[in-house]
Design a protein around this nucleic acid. Sequence first.
RNA 1: GGUCCGUUCGUCUAACGGUUAGGACUCAAGAUUUUCAUUCUUGCAAUAGGGGUUCGAUUCCCCUACGGACUACCA
Length: 514
Amino acid sequence: MTGRTRVRFAPSPTGPLHMGGVRTALYNYLYAKQRGGDFILRIEDTDSQRFVPGAEEYIIEALAWCGISPDEGVENGKMAETPSEKHPHAPYRQSQRKPLYRKYAEQLIENGFAYYAFDTSEELDAYRKEAEAGGDTFTYNYQVREKLATSLKLSPAETAERLSSGNHWVIRFKMPVDRIVKMTDLIRGDIEVNSSTLDDKVLWKAADELPTYHLANIVDDHLMEITDVIRGEEWLPSLPLHYMLYEAFGWAGSKPNFAHLSLLLKPDGKGKLSKRDGDRLGFPVFPLEWKNSEGEISSGYREEGYFPEAFVNLLAFLGWNPGTEKEIFTLEELSEAFSLDRVVKSGAKFNPDKAKWFNQEYLRMRDTSALANEFAALLNTKGISRPIAYIEQVVELIKERAHFVKDFWELSDYFFTAPDTYDQTVKNKFWKEETPSVLESIAKMLESLEPFTKENIEHSLSPFIKENGWQMGAVMNTLRLAMVGASRGAGVADIMALTGKQETISRIEKLAKS
RNA sequence: GGUCCGUUCGUCUAACGGUUAGGACUCAAGAUUUUCAUUCUUGCAAUAGGGGUUCGAUUCCCCUACGGACUACCA
């Protein structure tokens, strides 16, 4: 089969997109871009019960924030609803494609690959309970389908009557007996399953006239000419069903390739990463902040101060590596380097420390002026405003120490406000009886320093201390105490020069008098 | 329980039959910085266990253990 690579990301709008979901979208996108193909967004909202308002918008916005832009499906920030040259398969929301699916389900019945089933959910529950009591599991399959209320057992007349008398019926796939289904996964290789271990999945439900995932998914992938399906590992158990479905429709020849991605696991302990782990361990599990209907807020990478480029980069490395030692990749570089061959089979435990490291790397690469603008906005929320040139100089001095822009404040507060308290342990360590007079003489010396630059301060301060026979370490640390209030921060001369002569002298005198 | 998938330093991973099992994050030590951080150097640390196959197994096969997913008229 030749032709253009077409992949899709097909989430359900049942809540905010989890970072694992973003990774799946990213891998699809990278795969498509590398092969010059198309990345399609489709919304699988065939479960009216679990629909969550705002989830679809969230998905679109989250992908946009990451720079993962669908070639098809999204138009002006919304799902495309009418077919056009760019969106030939619109609508891309399955609830809007509703009329399309039933005929496919019925085609399967006509060809003997499916049947009508009339069991109510209460009856099914009862069967399950009964089986459980006997230590068994109830499976709707070849062993029961001809004993229960199905079109396989009932006469055509009876079936017709039941079909017309209500909507308590579904269409089920008639899973073949004892067939070895041979499958290939691009990441995992060959897999075989005996069809007898599988059940007769519901394909279509009359109650809401909607298909289930399995039917809608296969029909849409076929109609949308999807060539490669890259999805989460949770779908691997239904791969044989999907194979059989393609076969039953007569589409086996144009069936897409499949690749199943392993899960993202929680940083500690076992199991897959969940919203709770984020709350518990203090890192986001969602790309963007999300507020649920109860008003409960889940933090997002964007709001936590991650750069989208860093988020994408760290996500790409959770389950994939380029095979080289390069770790920092732009989205462009990722699409060049990406390959399913290098996707790891086993699940990846998420490591929040490494995530922070990625952001730090991006912060360092970022323009000082961009960082200064972001910091200025943050300062604004604190009611502080300074010329941007000043903020740029501050950023220059502290950016190496930060992981996030939001770290800037606690790393540089002393550039904006004089210390109002002094670290007592530092003070006790260096304070002597003559310290106030020493500080006064230094203030006086600095007073006459012109221009008040870092170099000038450095060149005069240290000889001055030596000439007077003072202890270098003690004096420098005391000056730092005057400027910062603690034993931290940029170089003393840097701080003095940037803060300015008057402010420097006033801080020194303030400490001298304390 | 059944079906399927998986298992290399604490974590992410490299090594696709032959390496002193490599790198990154974390942590520790030293140097630099008269602070803190940065930077640099060094260190700690792994092939789940048992059988095969092979001259040789992290790598191939089997068993066991452990982990995970699925087992809905949810996706």
